[in-house]
Nucleic acid binder design. Structure first.
Lengths: 195, 195
DNA sequence: TGTACATCAGTGAACGCGCGTTCACTGATGTAC
DNA sequence: TGTACATCAGTGAACGCGCGTTCACTGATGTAC
């Protein structure tokens, strides 16, 4: 028993390393970041890093797990009634929120995938899971008589692509960006009458 | 005078290095490619590389220049009459063609930009120039009474984002991909009536 | 046309930089009795 | 409560791997006369 000071200390350091990593990734990008960049930013010795992670990749995985958790929270707090309307807004909104909040880690994962086949696979799976509800929703619209621009799966790709790339380039306020994106997407899916 | 055999030899090697680079970039990605991977693929000694380029970056720039040349060719061979119709097809088509033909080098440039600020700037400029005619066209539509989903500049971003990301993910035939993309984009811009 | 010398594309072993990773050490915390 | 020992988070200098880059060398072409 006694104080858990040792465990707390370790936990604290771990947390500081992860915060430092976010800062440094945002500044220099994942691929340009050296281990000592992270430890220096965290105010720790280089060797300390390996008490907690086997390498930069493992730290990134730890950061990535927090995205999945947050995704569930966002979906849970959405108004269920919003899903009744014929619009892709709720889905696009989840994406938009996740992307703005976790931009740094998402970019880092993308960068890591370029250099590490394991990450590439992981991202592909994650993307697929993320789009499943989109495809389902689009398929329902189609059954209800909507003429999609392409098959549900292809349409989901079109929307997802537009959303990701637009979110990456958009510089204005998040609200305006989301509105423009939703307008564009809903038109592509339903036509302007749906607005 | 006499035979220009020496210059030819150099030219030949240069050409083989560039072909080899394309092959290796396609296989392993730009960032994972080592100089010796390229020279080995080209059947040359490692040192030979530096007779032609100061490094991997310079070789990539040489490859990139060929894209600009090709872009002009594609635009020149397009039917001018096609530009009369109220559709983004001609612009999307140029993009689609360029992307499919030069995928490997475009991806390499993107990868290089992650690690090299100079490339990042260069890509940004290139992207901006590429989208200028899109913005002009969209502004004309707007003047003619079309209600765009957002400002011409923002709409161009939306379309460009959709196009790039979709082109990257699409696995089917180029024709089908282009058709789906154009349908989606034109709906987003004009609504389904324009089809 | 022939000879002697200069130039230059290509070679590949060796060098050395950058950075990830290790490891002997420190001092604080935890445990046994 | 006190003492002796064990454990463990953190340290940072040093090691060594991987790979970019160099450079003395080769042999084929080009040039001068």
């Amino acid at each position: 028993m006694a104080g858990t000071t040792r465990a707390q200390q370790a936990e604290q350091t771990r947390h500081e390393l992860e915060s430092a990593a976010r800062v440094v990734f945002a500044r220099s990008g994942y691929l340009n970041t050296k281990i000592v960049d992270i430890t220096r930013q965290a105010g720790r010795a280089a060797g300390s890093f390996y008490n907690h992670y086997s390498g930069k990749d493992e730290l990134l995985l730890a950061l990535a797990e927090q995205i999945g958790v947050d995704a569930d929270v966002i979906v849970a707090t959405q108004d269920p009634a919003a899903r009744e309307h014929p619009t892709m807004r709720p889905h696009v909104e989840v994406f938009w929120q996740l992307f703005t909040r976790h931009r740094v880690v998402i970019d880092a994962l993308r960068d890591a995938a370029l250099v590490n086949a394991d990450f590439a696979q992981r991202i592909q799976r994650f993307t697929q899971v993320q789009f499943e509800p989109w495809v389902d929703r689009l398929a329902n619209f189609e059954k209800a008589g909507v003429e999609l621009p392409a098959s549900p799966a292809t349409t989901a790709m079109l929307i997802g692509g537009a959303a990701e790339n637009f979110a990456r380039l958009w510089q204005g306020s998040p609200e305006d960006g989301l509105d423009a994106l939703v307008t564009f997407v809903d038109r592509g899916v339903f036509g302007p009458a749906a607005q």
